[in-house]
Amino acid sequence: MTASLETSAVPVGAGEPAKRPAQAIEKLQELTIIGLLDEKPMMIWASHYLSAMAKALLDDAELGMKS
Results as ranks from 00 to 15, higher is better:
39 E>S: 08
30 E>H: 10
30 E>P: 04
51 S>M: 10
37 L>V: 15
47 S>R: 00
43 M>P: 01
37 L>Y: 08
47 S>T: 01
44 I>S: 03
37 L>T: 13
24 A>E: 04
19 K>V: 15
43 M>E: 05
22 A>F: 14
37 L>D: 13
39 E>G: 00
44 I>P: 02
20 R>E: 03
22 A>Y: 13
32 T>H: 05
40 K>E: 15
24 A>K: 00
42 M>T: 06
38 D>P: 01
46 A>D: 14
23 Q>I: 03
42 M>I: 06
50 L>V: 04
46 A>W: 08
40 K>W: 05
37 L>F: 14
25 I>Y: 06
48 H>D: 09
45 W>H: 13
28 L>N: 01
36 L>A: 12
45 W>A: 11
32 T>P: 00
23 Q>T: 08
38 D>M: 12
19 K>I: 11
51 S>P: 00
21 P>L: 06
47 S>L: 05
41 P>W: 11
34 I>R: 05
29 Q>H: 08
36 L>K: 14
49 Y>E: 12
41 P>M: 10
37 L>P: 01
50 L>P: 00
47 S>Q: 04
39 E>R: 03
39 E>Y: 05
38 D>A: 09
32 T>R: 13
24 A>Y: 01
30 E>A: 02
34 I>S: 02
33 I>Q: 05
40 K>Y: 12
29 Q>I: 14
